[in-house]
Simulated assay, not measured.
Amino acid sequence: MISSPPKLRDELEVIRGMDDMPLIFDPVTGNYHRITRASEVVLSYLDGTRTRDDLVACFSGARRASGARRADDDTLSRRIDTFLASLEKSGLLEGSDLPDKPGSGGRVRTSMLMPRIILTRSLPRVLEPVASVLRTVPASLLVLIASLGAIAGYTFGFHTLFTAMPALKDLSGPAFLIATGVMLLYVLVHESAHALVAQMLGTPIRGLGVALLFYFMPVAYVDRTDAYRVKGRGGRVVLAMAGIVSDGWFCALSGAVALNSGGLLKDTAAFLLSMQLFMLVINLNPLMPSDGYTALEAATGLTNARGRAFALLRHTARRQELPTHLANLSTGARRGYTTYGLFAVVYVCFLAYAMLHAVPVTADLALSVVGR
C-alpha cells in the first residue's frame, strides 16, 4: 500500500488518443499508458498534497453525495489501491523506478521471441519532402486512388499467377533465389509505406529496423508507437493498411513483367507474384498483431478482439456460463466476435491446407537450387 502522498512525475503528458481515449505519455521511456476516463479524473488529484486515505475519503464522499451506498466504499478503496499500484509499477509516480532506464533505447532491443535491431532513425527526414507534397492532395482522394489501385493489382496478380504462369514446381531454382532477394526490397517498401502515412499524419516513426522472429527469421518493421496520438479511426486504419496497399501496386508490376517476358525473368516474376500473394495472406492473419488485425482494432475501436472472440466461442461450445465482460455484450457485438472467431478458425484450416500442399513443391525447389 502506498502511504506517502502520491504524485505524478512532472514531465508526464496526459493526451487524448483514438476515440478520445486518455493516455499518459512518458517522454523519458517513450512509452504510452492507456487509462480509463474515470482514472483520468483521479490523476488531477495526484499532486503530492493528498495521501491515499485522503483520496479514498474524497471520492467516497462524492459518491455518497450522488446517492451511492456506503457499502461500495470498500470496492472504491480497492480500485484506488490497484490504480496507484499500477502507476507505481509503471514508474509514473515520483520516487518509483522506471521500467526502462534512460539510455536503454539503443539500436538493439530484445523482447520475447523477437529481438529487434534499429537500422536507421532518419527515415522521417527522408520522407518529409514526399509527405509535404502529398498533404496538398485531399486525403480522401489519395485513399481512393491507392485503394482502387491495390485492389486492381491484387486481382491482376491472382489472375496472372493462376491462369498465365506455369506451376511453381516447373520454374527454375535460381529464379527463386533472385525473387527472394527482390522480395526483401519489397518488404522494405512495405514498411516505408507505413512510415510515409505516419509522416503525413504528423506522427513520425521512431525507427526502421529488422526483427528476428523466433530469433532466426528476419522481418522488417517500423516503430510506429506514436500512432497512439492519431485520434481518428480513419487515419489509424490507413496507417495500418498502408503496407498492404503498396504491395498491391507492386503485385501488378510483377504480373506485368511476368506476362511480357520469358526465361529467367519470367520465372523470377512468377515467384515474386506467389511471394507477394502469400505475404497478403500473412498480413491478414487474424491470430497475430498483423496489419489486418491492427486495422480491425482501429476500425472498430475494440481491444483484444482475438482473445474475446475465442473466449466466447470456447464458452459457447462447452455450454459454460459466460464471464461478466462477455455476458454483458450487446447482440451485435456478440455476433461480431463470433464471426471474427469463426473466420480465424477458417483461416487456420486454409493455412494448414496450403502449407501441407506446399511441402512437395518446396522440396523440389530446394533440390533444383543445389542442382539435384
Rank of each mutant, 00 (worst) to 15 (best):
Y32T: 09
A363M: 11
M241E: 07
I15S: 05
G336R: 01
N31K: 12
R125D: 03
G153W: 04
L259M: 13
G149D: 09
M165C: 08
L123S: 03
D73T: 14
D73Y: 07
V245E: 00
V187L: 14
P323I: 10
T300Y: 04
A85V: 09
R372F: 13
K7D: 02
S60R: 09
A258N: 09
F156Q: 09
G209T: 01
M112S: 10
G341Q: 04
D10S: 07
P286L: 03
V219H: 00
D100Q: 12
N285R: 06
D53R: 13
A258M: 03
V359H: 06
G157W: 03
H190L: 07
G103P: 04
L213N: 08
S60T: 15
L87F: 07
V346K: 01
S290F: 03
G262T: 12
P289V: 06
M355T: 13
Q276L: 15
M200W: 01
L351V: 14
L119Y: 06
F25W: 12
L8P: 06
M355Q: 13
F158W: 08
V219P: 02
R107W: 15
V197W: 12
A317S: 12
A139E: 14
A295S: 07
K266H: 14
Y293F: 15
G232V: 07
G336Q: 08
N285W: 00
V230R: 09
E11A: 13
P129I: 04
R37C: 04
S66H: 11
A298R: 06
D54G: 05
A195R: 11
R236S: 01
T75R: 13
E88K: 14
D10Y: 07
V126T: 14
R9H: 02
L84C: 00
P289Q: 06
T338D: 04
E88H: 15
L351Y: 10
F271S: 05
Q199T: 11
S111T: 11
Q199M: 13
A195D: 03
L92G: 01
K89S: 13
G48D: 11
S290W: 00
I205M: 09
T163A: 14
D223V: 00
L168R: 07
Y293C: 04
R125V: 08
L134M: 12
P174D: 09
I35Y: 04
L365N: 06
